[in-house]
Design a binder for these strands. Structure first.
Lengths: 201, 201
DNA sequence: AGATCAACCAAGCAAGCGCTAGTGTAAACC
DNA sequence: GGTTTACACTAGCGCTTGCTTGGTTGATCT
């Protein structure tokens, strides 16, 4: 069994699995459905993945890794001000939601279907991502950009952002950048941000 | 079959089902597990519910009805100011989350498992609830309490609130009222609300 | 030319699934 | 006092599930 490696074939199969998991849910997605979508027979599936659980873990890992990488890159590329960093994180979050939407929806909805081992491994990845957020929020609090309880504010923000997967329409008029701007405007105390973006210092 | 009525026995069974659906997920919860939890045999279950789907629908309906009733009551009992009404809605939302948590978690996570008929019926209920929110948010916008896009603000707020089911600990120090107050403080422009609540006019 | 190996297939097993059929029984009703 | 009703039981049908087994293929490497 070719279970360990990270072959391009496996990556493609993972992408297809994510799509089906979103459409049907993990439990209702049978290995036969997965195989058909992949153009192979159900038995062949277990050449690439040890079991069905491992497919789920692969899907979630893929999405979380991408989110983490994108957030780190965004923080490196943006300016030093608390406002800029807040914007950068919000933009990165919504951007990964667009490009890896299936994986993130699966991560949000099917997390509990992971076995203990995968859940443990993946929760470390997710914690790393959330720590980035809490750090940026701490900076915003220190800068007086936002006010309130550190813990609560970050939960509220994560909630507002993650909830977008339920209603955001990529075909619609609103760009992810617009959402990011609006969210930051909503939580910062600079009441009336003028229409012209004040992203630069 | 006693399928239609709303007997107290059926209500109790629904409550137990909600708990199991949260623990295991709808698909992984078998009718045999449900029956055991209820202290009857699996066959007897179908005396109370037409099929497994109907149990899910009953759980979600119960939670949504309660949320709607609580929100309406809260709006009637509170003052007329936009701030008070915003607070009242947030408090009611978090309160129903505490008392009917299982039902709401099921509603959020297992909505897609509903058949078309139930989904149609229940989405009307949910729409009624969300309309209450959008109305109150409109008032807050008009009063200058908050700023931004009507649609986006309400989605962000719903997201922040609904996300609480993932982290809120009823045993913890924070009361639902505290969360409500903090959320309203975060999104309103009255930057520094003094510690003494300004709920009365 | 022979060996290796990832990738696939056909067939099927054991377990578990939702649900039905038919029956028993104690209380409620006429 | 006979009939109805509500609720529970036993037994099991027909089907689907995740996964295994044993074998084939074609490309790559030595």
């Amino acid at each position: 069994m070719n279970v360990v490696n990270e072959s391009p074939r496996r990556k493609e199969l993972t992408r297809l699995a994510a799509q089906l998991f979103v459409q049907e849910g993990f439990d209702r997605t049978t290995v036969r459905m997965l195989a058909q979508e992949m153009g192979i027979k159900s038995g062949s599936l277990f050449h690439h993945f040890r079991d069905k659980q491992e497919i789920l873990a692969a899907v979630i890992e893929e999405g979380t890794q991408n989110a983490l990488a994108l957030a780190r890159q965004a923080l490196e590329e943006c300016g030093d001000s608390a406002g800029e960093r807040l914007h950068a994180m919000a933009r990165a979050h919504l951007q990964t939601l667009l490009t890896d939407r299936n994986a993130h929806v699966v991560a949000l909805y099917e997390w509990r279907r992971l076995d203990a081992a995968s859940r443990d491994h993946l929760s470390h990845l997710r914690d790393a991502y959330e720590e980035l957020w809490e750090q940026v929020i701490d900076e915003a609090l220190a800068a007086g950009l936002i006010h309130g309880d550190r813990f609560l504010v970050s939960r509220f923000v994560m909630g507002a952002l993650n909830w977008t997967v339920r209603w955001y329409d990529p075909e619609g008029a609103r760009k992810p950048e617009d959402l990011a701007h609006e969210l930051v405007a909503m939580i910062t105390t600079s009441a009336h941000t003028p229409p012209g973006l004040s992203t630069k210092v």
